[in-house]
Amino acid sequence: MRRAAREDRSVEMGGNRPVPTGHAHNWPNLVFEKLREFQVRHVTYVPDTGHAQLIELCQAADGMEPTVLTTEEEGIGILAGAWLGGERGVLLMQSSGVGNCINTLSLSKVCGFPLLIIVTMRGEWGELNPWQIPMGQIAAKSLQLAGVIVYEVTEPEAAAPTVEAAARICFNGGLAVAVLLSQRMLGTKLFKD
């Protein structure tokens, strides 16, 4: 996985190799390319299988600043500080972390700071783990109640265009925007192994 991420650095460098398009499993590369396009430097994340490939691409990228979090709301503070310092970032997390963020979302809302969030969904589509379901079922509504614009993605081909739209409205409008990546595109964890 790590090796694959390093080999894909051509994407982040502007790329001598063409980026394959329209491939269902290629969405992390295409999302990564969008983050570079929008000059996203700070990548705050809680480790997560759904985001693993995107995280590895960001870790391997020159000029990106990944910060692993112990709880999701820390990312909101770090990205607020980075914005005050003149730089952009993204928060990567799983839907179970949405609830942790609710009060801290007031920081970006009150100050009008842009906040770009990409959420991998759990407890939403054929979930096996009952503990993931309560938060997964209310993640989108909770974000919306907290003033976050929510874009939901169910097809892998739509991930990068949606992140692009989210980044544009986020950084141009000084708004909090979350892209929710459905289990329909990520695949549902079945714990068969």
């Binding site: 709301e73 909101i76 500080g81 003149g86 009060n103």
Partner: peptide
């Protein structure tokens, strides 16, 4: 100065974000 008047717990992380950016 950047004053937090809510979002409890964010002073350290905002400071870290600033430190990383500047």
């Amino acid at each position: 100065n950047f004053y937090l008047w809510g979002a409890m717990g964010s002073a350290v992380t905002v400071g870290l974000g600033l430190a990383l950016a500047q």
